[in-house]
Design a protein around this nucleic acid. Structure first.
Lengths: 159, 159
DNA sequence: ATCAACACTAACGCGAACGTCAACGTCCAG
DNA sequence: CTGGACGTTGACGTTCGCGTTAGTGTTGAT
């Protein structure tokens, strides 16, 4: 239980990773299998080691799944497009095709714009739904208050 | 193609209902089968006839599904609790147990409060995600603008 | 009466997203 | 060097949410 880990112990094995993320080990392996996660590093014996970035990536996947309700296939495309960032950063100095890099960046931006649009749309709808529910609440509470006041009085409802 | 329907024709058969709702007939039957929809009225021959309220109910189910991502089982509980409203209204004058009615109302209110809480939570998370995405967008666009200005200039990134 | 369009039930099928189990290997504290 | 906790890879199983097909009946216009 040492606390100042030598940077090699800042990696998490699948068990703790799963716990912290609120997922199961199976789910992590499944995501990897489906290409949503790049294969994490391993220990000598083959145990998976998740880095902080790996963990963050999974967090984002969770959000896209739970919050926006995308399928894993959709999410795969999104995170792939997003990888462009790290990728471009890495290959920046390589003599790789500049036009191609620009193209990837544009794609990444497109995907991001689309995500934002979806979020905005959902938030609008949720606001509308919230208002509707709040209205409904009002009625319930009014009815209940009325009850408290005159427990026996049965005023036939007219709305 | 008469337009002033005698109130009996304001009901929709499953085909048109499905079209207007953007669902399939199968889905409507499935929801009914699963108890999410109360069995609609029928024609002589057995064709389903959906009333305006039936349609609204399905709309709400759709929203709970698409917007909040609940399972049909969860949704069933929610709409059931919500039925209390109509139910209480109907039995209002019957000599039914008043305390029981109040109990049901309280339950309905609870469910509504819970739904609102969930919406609020989701909206918060979505707002956070939106901000994050917006920040990411900024970077993409900055990078792209930089490109436009000096197509060949490769300034090694430092952030 | 007939015919096309529409609906009904029952049953099997299916992809997504994991759960679960078996058989086996690894890690490390004592 | 050993035991118990933890991990690995298949592979098969499960649940959800419908899709699809088959065989049959209903409706409404002509």
């Amino acid at each position: 239980m040492n606390d100042d880990r030598p940077a090699t112990e800042r990696y998490l094995q699948i068990g703790e990773a799963a716990d912290r993320l609120g997922l199961t080990q199976r789910t992590l392996r499944y995501y990897e299998e489906k290409g949503l996660l790049k294969p994490p590093s391993r220990m000598e014996g083959g145990f998976r080691l998740y880095s902080a970035e790996d963990i963050e990536r999974v967090q984002r996947i969770k959000e896209l799944r739970d919050l926006l309700g995308f399928s894993l296939a959709d999410i795969k495309e999104m995170v792939e497009a997003e990888d462009v960032k790290a990728q471009v950063r890495a290959e920046w100095n390589s003599a790789a095709d500049a036009a191609e890099k620009a193209e990837k960046l544009r794609k990444a931006r497109e995907v991001t714009v689309a995500q934002i649009a979806i979020i905005d749309q959902k938030m609008e709808q949720m606001a509308a739904m919230r208002a509707q529910l709040a209205g409904r609440m009002e009625k319930y509470e009014a009815r209940l208050r009325e009850w408290e006041r005159e427990p026996g009085a049965v005023a036939s409802p007219r709305a």
